[in-house]
Design a binder for these strands. Structure first.
Lengths: 344, 344
DNA sequence: TTGTACGCGTTATCAT
DNA sequence: ATGATAACGCGTACAA
């Protein structure tokens, strides 16, 4: 139980004043060469480390990033968290992690807590609610970056995501190229830009091929719950079921795939399938699934870069919107349409 | 950019002194009923929230838990993190997350950082190195709980894990019951108690059935890298390959399964398989894999309970060791041995 | 370069 | 028994 040395201890043994020590620590002013040496020496020998709490208190802001994710059970978010922690560390920033479990109430609580902790910035996958809360955070100067999703009613917030419209377009197009015209789409809530963009991309691809999008083939489901699985089942139960399916709600991929497996739907014979987000297991299932691979490391890098840049005030005003490309990985879950669907 | 109210602001508008406010806040002393009301009122109306940094600074310790995990890419750790964050939140504690990527160097860095942040406690899956660092942490009064793994050379540290020996025993026994006698084992490093215990359990089960454990069938591999996959391949390349395999290195399950899939080893015909840790995808692959399910929520709950209890000094001295039971989930990756192996 | 006030919640001391 | 006051913890930043 040793009391760690303080900056004053260092100053004392180095024979200088605390300000000098602070100077060399943050390189925030001129220090005589020898004095600097003495200080470095003292720091080294005493194994001095500045206390984060003290720094935060005086600066009113911590070099800490609040990471507010939906849940770590989802491999996509888990890997995102892994990379974000990694990137943050590389920049000397810490990450305090919170999960919303897609529950706006929990999200609200988390935001309050982050306020208490006076974090400098937040990277989040918002639930879509709590607009007021987010604004309050902004109001006290916390920099916010939404990653993967953005929500309505909130302006001036940086967003890092994949090119959603283009990705959905690409996926849909590849299915069209195989002769499919009845292509189902399971996507995220319309309250998120992600959901809307993916639907738009899907529709664009369809129209380009002269296929008119049908409402019954588009299902938007919440990020959490059995919605995705149910939607898949419902689509298959349609009088004229789709011959191909795009699961563009990243959070629901697992549920949908599981349900499909339970239903014993033979893939790709009965149904061609493309899922959003490529996981280690997508190639382990039978058949290996074609997937839109999201460059998670890029999402992570850009989010961290953006928050940190904002925190250090080295970003122009006005929201920064970054889109990275997803890549279609072709495996064995898509087949050419043998028996074309009745085109009504 | 509003400056949040301080405790003195609250005291002022409530017409009392700061001590009174502090009293009601932490309920650390008697306060007259009406005054208390006034204070609560003021807090409410001003939306006052105490700054965490100030509290930490004065107390020298934060109600923050450092969570040091190997990596979140592994679904086991990801789900563990998810539950730990959840449990911590339920107790009003925050979690700062760091990953070691199984690299002792990164781990050392993380520990330093945690020291700076004066976290009250740490929950970790240690790499096995940095014994000195861990001791230093202990020395300054940070409470440490190892979860899932424990390491040698470090005493007086609380450990929460599954009953490793028994689990390996159970898995092995179920294979023996199917007639297998040449059962391979891929386990974690011998430097971890986890690795050793699982091997011991495996051997016990074997001996109980009159089968003498053969060294060539036991492979210990590091938590990271291709070791697990290579070990699996090596086992299958043996002159007399095993007819069943237990993958008891949780961190390597993914690698092993992937390699097995690449090798086209037909399961369970050529090889019966039991893996440690049950994931959403273990039942999605073909065939669905039998697995030892680890009660992740219990691991999380007990680790959080333990650190917090320690932090609040309400635990007797002497390390607390908690073991929870894992459960064998039978699916379709194990079959009775048709053509018994030559018993030499 | 140095001295010192400051930020803010906590707690010990003192007065009522 | 209550409430008020001041000192403390520690790094930062500005004035001297």
């Amino acid at each position: 139980m040793n009391r760690p040395p303080t900056i004053r201890d260092v100053a004392k043994t180095a024979g200088v004043s605390v300000s000098v020590v602070s100077r060399v620590l943050n390189d925030s002013g001129p220090v005589a060469g020898e004095k600097r040496e003495a200080v470095l020496q003292a720091i080294e020998s005493m194994a001095y480390r500045p206390r984060a709490a003290a720094r935060e208190l005086s600066q009113g802001r911590a070099l800490t990033i609040g990471l507010v994710l939906a849940d770590l059970t989802n491999p996509f978010f888990a890997r995102l968290a892994d990379r974000i922690v990694w990137e943050a560390r590389a920049h000397g920033a810490q990450v305090v992690l919170m999960t919303t479990q897609e529950d706006p109430h929990l999200e609200a609580e988390s935001l309050d807590t982050l306020l208490d902790r006076s974090v400098g910035g937040v990277i989040a996958t918002p639930t879509g609610e709590n607009v007021g809360q987010w604004e309050k955070l902004q109001d006290v100067g916390v920099d916010i970056v939404f990653v993967d999703r953005a929500i309505d009613g909130l302006h001036g917030i940086d967003v890092v995501s994949i090119a959603n419209a283009r990705s959905a377009d690409t996926a849909t197009e590849s299915l069209l190229a195989l002769g499919h015209t009845r292509i189902g789409l399971i996507s995220g809530p319309l309250s998120t830009s992600t959901g809307r963009s993916r639907i738009a991309g899907y529709q664009d691809a369809l129209r380009r091929s002269g296929v008119s999008p049908e409402t019954e083939l588009i299902r938007t489901v919440p990020f959490r719950g059995d919605g995705g699985a149910d939607a898949a089942a419902a689509l298959l139960a349609l009088p004229e079921p789709p011959t191909a399916l795009v699961v563009a709600n990243t959070a629901q991929v697992q549920n949908v795939v599981r349900r499909l497996a339970q239903l014993g739907t033979s893939i790709p014979q009965e149904l061609s399938l493309i899922v959003f987000d490529d996981n280690p297991w997508t190639e382990l299932v039978t058949p290996p699934l074609s997937a839109m691979r999201q460059p998670i490391d890029l999402l992570a890098r850009h989010s961290v870069d953006t928050v940190l840049a904002r925190m250090q005030g080295r970003l122009p005003t006005g929201p920064r919107v970054i889109e990275v490309e997803a890549e279609l990985i072709i495996r064995s879950s898509c087949a050419a349409l043998i028996r074309p669907a009745h085109s009504a």
